[in-house]
Design a protein around this nucleic acid. Structure first.
Length: 885
RNA sequence: GGGCAGGUAGCUCAGCCGGUUAGAGCACUCGCUUGACAUGCGAGAGGUCACAGGUUCGAGUCCUGUCCUGCCCACCA
């Protein structure tokens, strides 16, 4: 008999939980027919249809809050419902190592109090201690999951860094690499010049500061004006020009060598001499072609008065000497010139003209690495200029004017200098532009090195730190008359969270997954509803994301995670070359890319060390790379893959649709050839009591344990589910919890009333044939009412609308069963007409039983507790969990 | 700036393949300490369904526009 008084979940729930766990009801090996755990092999042969949910692994580094846990209510509802429907059910629990966030938390909350930082601990020691730390916290999280009633198989609780999971995940990487879906490419990263490491966005923090806002005039090139860049191999020639010699005969004139062919050069074009010598770092000297003449022979050229007839010491030379100079050149130059003739150009110093486009910047020194000027395509002032070229001062490169809608017309001059190597936004613009304009690609030039000093093709600024370079650049621009004005501006910069040094974004070589091919099937399965997404509008979000998804960078400069199965024969370094491009050096030897290094035997992809002297890559994988493989990796680990994959439902929060769901679909199909799940259900976001999204920083966190301690797990589960629909946000209030508590109390008391009043015939009831009873109109109505609400609820649950129907179900129990039928039946229970009384008793028994079953997936504890008081009929299990619905 | 939700009773939200008097819980008012439950029962009040147009015999529901709110993405050179 149920104890009297209000329902006491604190008393009842732990007992029920123990009952479930002790009997191994959560395990797929538990067989309800035999009422015992069967062998693994026998379970695999079980003919029942399967139902499997992989629980999205929460971060293992801390207690999950109410929002984090809400999913379990939905997952468990589905698990329990299908168990009762007769499926072989498997719930896979797990925990995530949470890469970046995990590392930050463990550093802050575990290592820092002990005075340990990454500077005074080895990588191996860090990993070992962090792993142990996570294992401890993981146990606590598991208890929360069990308390809420999640009926997953906790004996198979896994961690993303379990060695056998790691093995499966790394195999996927190796397969991707072999299939050509993985490459090493260059990408912008947050670089801390002090810590000498790349940082994730989350490791940086914003800081406001006052700074100069410099307006720089970039000279516009006329539309017919071209820029010729000539390499200077001979400094003396350069010196001669700089000393005022007007005409330069250049040997870079041969029509047979197109890259050096200057037959097209015309008056007014810009000629820039580039010093390729090492110490000059590509200093550039600009001139204007004043006169261009074509000569049939060397002799004809020599006879021109203004030709620089000088030797290497600047001394006048005879024709013979002049010709001898050419004869000494390689490649039969002289012969070619004699045959084809040549072009000579008369030069004058370059002076900026009157046409400019003005850009504004807080970082003038980065202009040395500019590769474009960007304007808004709708900006009337600049519309005509899109596609034109400007001459980038100081380094005298020709760069295009491009457009991007991101550019704010009202900021600065409305024209933005593009430095893709040193500004995130610029990098994005470059990617966008290149994607849409494959024929007019914009590149990057990296001009700041890992010590925040100028590098690359920056001429005399080479080696200066950014501050010095900034001052000098502004000074030089002033001399050229190219500074329009300088204003003061509030600027936000990002600093390293640890050392507060200003972040220098720069290019760095990273691993990428090529997604073009992989996303095709991942798009198709959702398009064709082979994977169904609930709510439906999220399908569009998914498909939109797939369209714009670019190659996925998967390497992270962290310690906490899967280390890349990549080995180098010696130390790996990255340097910036003279072109401003990132170059990799292995053991001091430059290599173009990883493929080349592999060919040269300097690099290898392998899970184990190839041998002595090989050093493993420092990179670890992006967390989503491993969690993207979670559905099949977990099942493979336990040998359950064949039995349960594809899984049935993936229930998760909608904010990780792009990050997680898309990756699981992509990698799942890639690795297994099958979709990872048939349905995706997005739960609503839990808002705190203040109506804001629940988050630690807002201080509106509620822990599930607090609610369970006070109200019990069933109350919390009702809060999560009742009246809520997929993808919507909803708020927690004390009122809602209180209301749910009252409902449970109602169910408790109604059940006790029923049990009290059927006690005398309790054991007979399951055997009664209702057709032989004298059922009244009320009885029949009650039976039909409860049957119809049960059927309706089942239909709704299968349609993923369990929240909506729960309201109706609750009201049905309360108002139809309690308020109407229970009241109506009271006189009959006291009557002497035993036949009529029995009909009423049977109806009470039957209706309540139906309610208990249909409520069990929602509120498992209280329903299971009441069920224990019921005699079990044919086909009814000692646990409500396995009683057929 | 782009995308996606949403604005319905005092509060939190349902209702939206168009169709009688628009619903629930909590709060509120009034009346009920009868034996499952006062964590209860009965009765009641409360809404120009954000605004403006349009389609229609008929619009909270469909279309267009406007104004707010929230979320995601991007951004503040």
């Amino acid at each position: 008999m149920l104890p009297p008084g209000p329902y006491n979940p604190q008393e009842e729930e732990p007992k029920i939980l123990k009952f479930w766990l002790d009997n191994n009801f959560y395990k797929p090996e538990y067989n309800p027919e035999k009422d015992k755990v069967v062998s693994f092999e026998e379970m695999l042969k079980d003919p029942r249809p399967t139902f499997c949910i992989i629980n999205p692994p929460p971060n293992a580094y801390g207690r999950p809050h109410l929002g984090n846990v809400s999913g379990y209510a939905y997952q468990d509802l589905l698990l329990r419902y299908h168990r009762m429907k007769g499926y072989l059910v498997y719930g896979q629990p797990g925990k995530d190592h949470a890469g970046i966030q995990g590392e930050i938390v463990v550093l802050r909350e575990y290592f820092r109090p002990k005075g340990i930082t990454k500077a005074n601990i080895t990588r191996e020691q860090f990993y070992k201690e962090t792993y142990e730390y996570f294992m401890r916290v993981k146990e606590q999280a598991k208890q929360d999951e069990q308390r809420i009633g999640l009926s997953s198989d906790f004996d198979r609780d896994v961690f993303t860094l379990d060695p056998d999971i790691v093995d499966i995940v790394l195999d996927t990487f190796i397969k991707l690499y072999k299939d050509g879906y993985v490459y090493k490419g260059v990408r912008i990263v947050n670089w801390c010049p002090s810590c000498k490491t790349a940082l994730a966005d989350i490791d940086t923090e914003p800081k406001e500061r006052e700074t100069d806002f410099v307006y720089i005039k970039y000279p516009l090139l006329r539309q017919d004006q071209r820029v010729w860049r000539l390499s200077i191999y001979n400094r003396d020639v350069l010196n001669a020009i700089l000393q005022g010699k007007k005409t330069i005969e250049t040997r870079a004139l041969n029509p047979e060598e197109p890259e050096r062919f200057f037959g097209d050069i015309k008056q007014g074009d810009i000629v820039v001499f580039v010093d390729k010598s090492k110490e000059g770092h590509r200093a550039a000297y600009p001139f204007v072609a004043k006169r261009v003449a074509i000569y049939k022979s060397l002799k004809e050229l020599y006879e021109q008065e203004d030709v620089a007839k000088i030797n290497s010491r600047g001394k006048k030379v005879s024709y013979e000497e002049f010709e001898a100079g050419y004869a000494s050149l390689a490649d039969g130059y002289l012969e070619k010139i004699k045959k084809n003739g040549m072009v000579a150009i008369e030069l004058e110093s370059y002076k900026p003209g009157k046409d400019f486009i003005t850009v504004a910047t807080t970082r003038p020194e980065t202009m040395l690495g500019d590769t474009a000027v960007v304007v808004n395509p709708n900006d009337k002032r600049y519309k005509e200029l899109i596609g034109r070229k400007v001459l980038l001062p100081l380094v005298w490169r020709e760069i295009p004017i491009i457009s991007d809608p991101i550019v704010d017309k009202t900021l600065g001059t409305g024209a933005l200098k593009l430095t893709p190597a040193h500004a995130y936004e610029d990098y994005q613009i470059m990617l966008n532009w290149n994607q849409e304009h494959p024929d007019e690609q914009v590149d990057y030039v990296n001009v700041i090195d890992k010590d925040a000093k100028m590098t690359g093709p920056v001429g005399k600024y080479y080696g200066l730190n950014t501050q010095e370079a900034r001052e000098e650049v502004v000074e030089d621009l002033k001399k050229l008359g190219l500074i329009e004005k300088i204003e003061q501006k509030e600027q936000r910069v990002y600093v390293c969270e640890r050392c507060k040094t200003v972040i220098e974004p720069q290019m760095s070589s990273q691993w990428f997954i090529k997604v073009d091919e992989l996303k095709k099937p991942a798009t198709e399965v959702v398009e064709k509803d082979i994977i169904k997404i609930h709510p439906r509008n999220m399908k569009k979000v998914y498909l939109d994301w797939m369209k714009v998804m670019r190659d996925w960078p998967i390497s992270r400069s962290l310690w906490w995670g899967y280390r890349f199965p990549v080995w180098y024969k010696g130390k790996v370094e990255e340097k910036i070359d003279e072109e401003g491009k990132v170059t990799m050096y292995i053991d001091g030897k430059p290599v173009r890319d990883f493929k080349e290094a592999e060919k040269l035997g300097l690099a290898k992809v392998s899970k184990k060390s190839p041998g002595k002297g090989w050093i493993q890559s420092d990179y670890v994988f992006d967390t989503w790379f491993s969690s993207g493989q979670w559905p099949f990796a977990t099942l493979m680990k336990f040998g359950l893959f064949e039995k349960f994959y594809p899984t049935d439902v993936m229930e998760t929060a909608y904010d990780i649709l792009k990050w997680w769901v898309s990756r699981m679909v992509m990698l799942g199909i890639y690795r297994t050839g099958k979709i990872p799940f048939k349905h995706v259900y997005f739960r609503g976001l839990i808002k705190g009591k203040d109506g804001q999204k629940m988050s630690k920083s807002k201080g509106n966190i509620v822990l599930p344990a607090e609610v369970i301690d006070k109200y019990g797990a069933d109350v919390l589960r009702l809060f999560y589910i009742v009246g809520n629909k997929a993808g919507a946000a909803y708020q927690i209030t004390e009122d809602k919890l209180e209301g749910n508590k009252r409902f449970l109390n109602k169910m408790w008391n109604a059940s006790r009333f029923v049990l009290m009043n059927i006690n005398d015939v309790l054991e007979d009831l399951p055997k009664i044939d209702p057709n032989k009873l004298k059922l009244t109109t009320d009885d029949k109505k009650m039976i039909s009412e409860v049957n119809s609400i049960v059927e309706k609820t089942k239909k709704y649950i299968e349609d993923f609308k369990f929240g909506i129907i729960a309201v109706e179900l609750r009201d049905h129990f309360w108002h139809v069963f309690c308020d109407w039928y229970l009241e109506a039946v009271k006189p009959r229970l006291r009557s002497d007409d035993s036949e009529d009384k029995l009909a009423a008793q049977y109806t009470l028994y039957y209706a309540l039983k139906q309610y208990l079953k249909i409520f069990h997936p929602y509120i498992p504890f209280i329903t299971e507790r009441i069920w224990q008081e019921f005699p079990k009929g044919k086909g009814e299990h000692r646990s409500l969990m396995y009683t057929r619905i």
